[in-house]
Design a protein around this nucleic acid. Structure first.
Lengths: 343, 343
DNA sequence: AATATTTACGCAAGCGTTTGCGCTCTCCAT
DNA sequence: ATGGAGAGCGCAAACGCTTGCGTAAATATT
């Protein structure tokens, strides 16, 4: 493991000069700089980040915080994709991501009580997922560290956040149903109102339905699982049997709707059209394959990473919410076999 | 952010003594130690890990390496669960996990060319997943860092590895089919032979089938996706229509088998029994719900973490392969609705 | 030609720990 | 009383890097 000393000795300069040369700082002659870079190459120099952190008192790692519940639920976890994108964006700039999954009680407590944050002094914090309580988000942001939210947002303060184009996406899906499905009754299956994406998707549904002059029917569930999707669909079909289309707030609920429809003797898509949201891995394999709105999760992570890098570099872009584009993926659950379906 | 200095000043001793007291090292009087611990508590001291790393020249983070392909395939990724368990085990001992996903070309190259390993000098390496090439595993192990494999293993050298009880698990599932399904023809859908778990599960299948005096039928696919499961099942049912049961090497192939069976007019489980392996999140929601062998992925991660901690602590346990117990989860795809089914 | 400015570099302190070594003091065996 | 052992503690160096400051030389300014 070579050090600055070695390079300095080789070239015949001081370590200070080598440090400056390697970090693209002024105060080094062009020729000297070249020789230093060559020597660094020759000895395969990599900076010791622990030493650098100690000297600069800032690290090159960002905390990636999620709620442990995401795991226990056994659902299709989306944050690995977020993390993947994040890692892609960050490693290229020399940053590492360190995942920390917190329990509900830890998320109630104070930010400072999390050892990782005290001991490792991360350069930034990423908080992913809708189930991190708002006070915690605010506390993280107030800690002074660059903070970014993914698939979550706060109303009061304006913490930077990366979100899918929820409203347009859901509006798009609903409109697709309206166009194809002859102006029939379209119900919405939605989740808790403290989940930002749920709110926004509902807005999209409402915009589309009202533009078409239809009567909205909104069913709110406590969570957005297959089970609740199934149960709320049952309720919808019993309360309003004339319903011919269902917009589900996410794919899990949509798959639940599929199951409920089958159990109640409805043929999807013939008697009932269904759309989901997210395009999780299994959406393409449901029966029938699910028409849904694809959320580019990896891209969201990448974006979060880039925004963070910009902020750490000092550019004071106070953009509050950044959107990533969604895309309607037409499969079979909506009843229109188009050639240009998936992909 | 308090330092050793502060505590030392408060108590009236040297930093050296504080350091020794806080690290449970000898050379500190009982009374002094108490006062130091109290003071540390009072100022909410947390060691600066960068400084410690610099002084000890070893870090408190472990690299978690996976193959990027795992993501692109869009399959149900299993390693988030591994990582979850790993994190649980490691954080309690003050270690952090840093995930690094490598591309195929990086996995062909040398270990040293990975910046993370040169710059962060991890305390250990975890390599997860069957698709990391053997030479890379060997190189990692040869690097001198404590290394552990999860869901992979090498034949030549004996790198410590954590694996599911593949053979027993698959034997168990196959025997269940044999017992319930009156001694009929049972085919196996397996994956590539360089995937250790595939090999071992095949052994389990063979053991069960041969013990029952049946003729084995093994179909090998290039990968273990829904698509290949579907395709190989089609082949099996065409080549040997009398087949009444299929053991799939993993749940994805099993779900593919389900689809193929439906397309070919077979009723599962009436005309064809199917079992999977892994118990991924969606196994419970397939139609019919999949009977499968549960692999405790989170537990595997936990175990890997604990083994690593032991090795870093110096205990020279040269256990080569550690097994975690699997468990047969009986649902409906095998045709025996037992009361004591899942959970 | 004399002065002011800039450029290129070295010195050395400092970041917060750990740890080998040496010192003092107490205690016990001689 | 004297010696040695051991416990308890402090000193100071070391880990590898960054950075403010000082200085000499080179260049620009009048």
């Amino acid at each position: 493991m070579s050090t600055l000393r070695e390079i300095a000795d080789r070239v015949g300069v001081s370590v200070a000069t080598v440090s400056r040369a390697l970090n693209d700082k002024p105060g080094v002659g062009a020729d000297t700089r070249r020789r230093i870079l060559d020597a660094a190459q020759a000895v395969e120099y990599f900076p010791n980040l622990a030493a650098r952190s100690l000297a600069t008192s800032r690290t090159q790692s960002v905390l990636f915080i999620i709620h442990r519940r995401q795991f226990l639920a056994g659902e299709d976890p989306f944050y690995p994709y977020i993390m993947q994108g994040l890692e892609e964006a960050l490693t290229s700039e020399g940053y590492a991501v360190m995942p920390v999954t917190l329990s509900a009680s830890q998320l109630e407590g104070s930010l400072a009580s999390i050892p990782a944050i005290r001991q490792r002094r991360p350069a930034a914090i990423v908080l992913a997922g809708p189930d991190i309580p708002s006070p915690f988000l605010v506390a993280a942001s107030a800690s002074g560290l660059p903070t970014i939210l993914v698939d979550n947002a706060t109303r009061e303060t304006s913490i930077p956040a990366v979100l899918p184009g929820n409203e347009e996406g859901c509006k798009r899906a609903t409109m697709h149903l309206i166009e194809a499905h002859h102006q029939s009754d379209i119900a919405l299956l939605r989740g808790p109102s403290d989940w930002v994406s749920s709110e926004e998707r509902t807005d999209g549904y409402l915009a589309a339905v009202q533009a078409a002059g239809l009567e909205p029917l909104i069913m709110t569930a406590d969570d957005t699982t297959i089970e609740t999707g199934q149960e709320t669909t049952r309720q919808v079909l019993e309360a309003r049997p004339e319903t011919t289309a269902i917009v589900a707030i996410n794919d899990a609920m949509a798959i639940g709707a599929l199951r409920a429809a089958r159990k109640m003797g409805r043929d999807v898509p013939k008697n009932l059209a269904i759309t989901g949201f997210d395009d999780i891995a299994w959406a393409a394999y449901s029966d029938p394959p699910l028409t849904t709105v694809r959320v580019p999760t990896i891209e969201m992570g990448r974006l979060a990473g880039r925004l963070l890098i910009d902020r750490m570099a000092g550019s004071l872009t106070e953009i509050s919410r950044t959107r990533v584009d969604t895309r309607l993926i037409i499969r079979e659950s909506c009843g229109c076999h188009q050639e240009e379906s998936s992909e």
